[in-house]
Structure formats: structure tokens, C-alpha cells
Design a protein around this nucleic acid. Structure first.
Lengths: 263, 263
DNA sequence: TCTTATTTGTTCGTATGTATT
DNA sequence: GAATACATACGAACAAATAAG
């Protein structure tokens, strides 16, 4: 298998493997040949193969399991419609338990959620300010790990003012049909306006483990804030999602000239 | 300089360099010590140093110039307010030539734009479908390279139906105050609704060169579509932006239940 | 549980190539 | 052309995680 010049060898190997995956020579879920075998096949050193595989990892095409091998990823990109996922119809459809459930089911995948933390805590500084709370006031924290057909796809950490959460009855494990926003709406505190800040960064150590990412992969960090009519924030949330797994979709109207710029 | 176990050496070196940059020991715009020097300092091989620097590259903290050295980046993250940047007030403020101008000036940086392509072409398939054109119908393509204080920050490729572009008088190099959307508005074709699809991918070879990226860095690809009241699309645009340089901001209202889901 | 084979992760020394000054 | 600095590649070795027995 002769490699040409012009491009570095590890890049050429990455290109070949990528094509193989796209052509389904290496089917989703299957294991690539061992690095030593690939090295022999392409006539390069194993270090070069390893570097090529790192590239594919960074692109999210494979997941590497030390001691076992390199596996081709199976889950297709998930489309997140930010502008619509909080609409009541999306959240309550089919008895879904909120926006995420709806989103994953729509793709024919099995959504599941693990509640990693639920309780009363002091909020982080940024959340406290956004929620308009005094120093010392407590919040409800809800931290969830979310899966699509058992693949980890989303980490969500929500903060609600404690008093509001109690009043709405969302301090419980199960928030009922339509999720928290439906409970808030029932007490006249349904959010009507949302903002999201999207940035991309390298994962923390904990996120690397949870998503089985390499340090060359990146994650979206989305700060989601829900507002009432009067401008009060009722939820501060941080979502973390691997970039290779998600497409973000937004929609909005052009009539925003009159409102003050929230910078 | 003793490195501990537990974490790999190249990661520890990356951590130390990252701290040095954050602490401004290595100031923005300055050059890091040569890899051979760092290798001597930390008591590791140059290959290990090189690998650490690759990580920093991937995070966008440094830009590497072969033969010259490794330079600390200077431009801070730019915040793109998608929901407001197309408002007339944002585009026409201070005689700006559109949303990008406004955005960069606001940060105290110098915006500049180079028109890379302007003319009549056959549209790519996706653009043709979105714009509702027959096969064979032509479009105006406008490809722009955009800079903040001479750093490349954005590649934008727009497609407009040719007839519309002529009518609005935007086939020219200069589209006048407020940019294209202001000209469209003048003929009663001002867009009132926008969608953006945001995804993250590895850069193409051309994008790598333009932005001086390594292959471990990633870019946002944003597909922006502008609609009229009646649902007709008047612009199909693809923006490409390095992820480390931008934060995306979106805002929207919750009243979208009644509209049909555009999937 | 221990052992062994397999597979990926990391590191080194060394060498050569390429771009810049 | 010479010196400098980063990019790539190899062979070898050992570490760490997993699987099979």
C-alpha cells in the first residue's frame, strides 16, 4: 500500500480509514484492525497509525477502548431545535418527560436519563446573579446525565430559585408530564423568553470520562436561561454536549429592534 | 522541573504552559521558548513538548509558525448575537456596512472585509432547493473573507436568487449602508425570519490555510437562511468560523407552538 | 485470583524534511 | 548559504486496560 508524498503519512492513513468508514467497509459498531496490523498493511510505524486514529477520534468517528480496540461510532448526529424544544407541544407530546425525551424519540432512539444530583445548594456566582438572588439564598440543583440508546449524549445542570421550585413542586425526582416548565406554567410562572450562549471548549476530566472523549475532542457548552414576561430569570442551566454528536438549530423573527440589547 | 505520574507528561507540560499563558508569563503576541529549550527545561524529549503544544493549538491558545516559533494568540473571543445582528439598528449604526462591521467595532477592533468572489454562478444543490429555484437558474454568489484587526475570523458565502439581487442592486461590490438586507427592504423584500443550523467540524484544507489552523482545531459551520413573510427564502449563506474565537448568542420567544415544525 | 496474550497509550533517541530569518 | 525552529517518521520499549483461560 504505497503512500504518496505531499501530505503527511498519518493524514493519508486517516483519509483512507475515514473513507473506509464512510463506505461501510468498517461498519458502525465494528472494530478496526489492530494498530499493529494497520501498520503492517500500510507499511508505516505504529506511532503513525496511532496518530491517524487520534484524528478520527477528534472527529468523533471512532471511540477507542484501550485493551480492546477501536470501534466505529453508531449514533447519527442529533438535531437540537432550541427554538422549538421548549414549546409545550414538543415537551408534552406522547407523554414525554420534557424536551430531551421528545428529541431522542423522534430519531427512533431510546432516551434515558439518570439523575446525578438533586437537592438544595448555594448557587455558583454566575447563576446567582442571573437569577437575581442575594448572597446566601439557596437554589434547587438538578444535574442529569442523558443517554440516547445508552450512549452518553448530554450533561445538564439546572439551577432554580428554591422557593419557586418548592412552590411549583419540582423538587421531586419525577417532574411529571411536560417536565419542569409545565409545572411552572401551572403556577403562572411559565417562561416566555429564552437565551442561549453557545461556546465550544475542551472537555473537563469528568466530561472526558463520561462521554469517552479524547482530549482532542471538544464539547458545546450551552448556557440556557429562561425568563418570565417581566424579565425575571427562573432557570439557569448549563448543558454540555459532544460537538460531533449534535447539530443546533435556531429560529427567530426580525422584529427585535425595539428591545434593549442584552449584552 | 519534576513532573509527576498519574497524568501523561505531555498533558502536564500543556497544563503548565496553559497556566503560564493565563498568568500572562507568556503575554499575548509573545513567542514561547523554542521546543528544544522547553524540552531541556522540563527534562523531556522535544517530541513530548511538541505534542503538548499541539494541544494548545487545538484550544486556540497559540498559533504556530514553522521556522519562527509559537506565538500566543491576541484576539479575545468575539460574541455573535445572532438574534440581533440582523436588526436594522445593528446593521446601520454608525454607518456600518452590515452586521459584522458593527460586531467587531463594538469590541474596539478594526473590521475589514475582502471580497473573494462576486458573480453569477449555478448554486450548489442545497442552496438551490432552499431558495426554491429550478435546476439551471442562476444565483449571485458573494464570498467574503473577514478580519478583526487583520486576524482572519470569518468566511461567509452567500447565495441570492439572481433576479432578486439585480432588482435590489446588490450585485455591486459595495452594497451601501446597512448592507444587503437594507437594500432588500427598500424593494419590499426585507427578510423577517431567520434560521441558523450550527454544527462543528474539522476545517477543510483551504480553511486551515486561511485561519492558520491545525487539523486538531475545529470550526463552526453555520447555515443561515433568511425568509420573507410568505416563507420564501431570499438568502442561503454558509459561515465558517474558528470555534475558539467565537461565542454564539441566541434569543427567542416561547410563542412558537402554532407554527408548523420545520424539520 | 492469578497469568498471559492482546491492544492502545506514552515516551525516548534519533533522523530527516520544510519553512523562516 | 547557514542557522533556527517546527513537522514528521521510525524503531524500540514500557505502561495500562481488557479479555481469555
Amino acid at each position: 500500500m504505497a503512500l504518496e508524498a505531499a501530505k503527511s503519512q498519518y493524514r493519508q492513513v486517516a483519509d483512507l480509514l475515514r473513507e473506509g468508514i464512510e463506505r461501510q467497509d468498517y461498519a458502525p459498531g465494528s472494530t478496526l484492525p489492530a494498530e499493529s496490523e494497520l501498520a503492517a498493511e500500510y507499511g508505516v510505524s505504529r506511532v503513525t497509525i496511532n496518530r491517524a486514529v487520534q484524528l478520527l477520534r477528534g472527529e468523533g468517528l471512532v471511540r477507542v477502548l484501550r485493551g480492546r480496540g477501536t470501534v466505529v461510532r453508531a449514533i447519527p448526529p442529533i438535531r437540537r431545535n432550541s427554538s422549538r424544544r421548549y414549546a409545550r407541544s414538543s415537551r408534552e407530546e406522547d407523554g414525554s418527560r420534557g424536551a430531551f425525551d421528545f428529541e431522542i424519540r423522534r430519531l427512533g432512539l431510546k432516551p434515558s436519563t439518570k439523575l446525578a444530583q438533586l437537592g438544595q445548594v448555594a448557587p455558583p456566582e454566575t447563576a446567582r446573579e442571573v437569577l437575581g438572588l442575594e448572597v446566601g439564598e439557596m437554589v434547587l440543583i438538578r444535574k442529569r446525565e442523558m443517554f440516547a440508546s445508552d450512549e452518553p449524549v448530554l450533561l445538564a445542570t439546572s439551577y432554580f430559585p428554591w422557593g419557586l421550585a418548592e412552590q411549583a413542586g419540582v423538587t421531586d425526582v419525577d417532574t411529571g408530564p411536560g417536565g419542569t416548565y409545565s409545572r411552572l406554567a401551572e403556577i403562572g410562572k411559565g417562561p416566555v423568553r429564552f437565551t442561549e450562549d453557545v461556546r465550544v471548549r475542551t472537555p473537563s476530566a469528568a466530561e472526558e470520562r463520561f462521554f469517552a472523549l479524547s482530549e482532542t475532542q471538544q464539547v458545546y457548552e450551552i448556557v440556557h436561561i429562561a425568563y418570565l414576561e417581566d424579565g425575571t430569570a427562573v432557570e439557569y442551566r448549563e448543558d454540555v454536549l459532544p460537538t460531533y454528536q449534535w447539530i443546533m438549530h435556531f429560529e427567530w423573527n426580525a422584529e427585535n429592534d425595539s428591545e434593549e440589547a442584552q449584552q
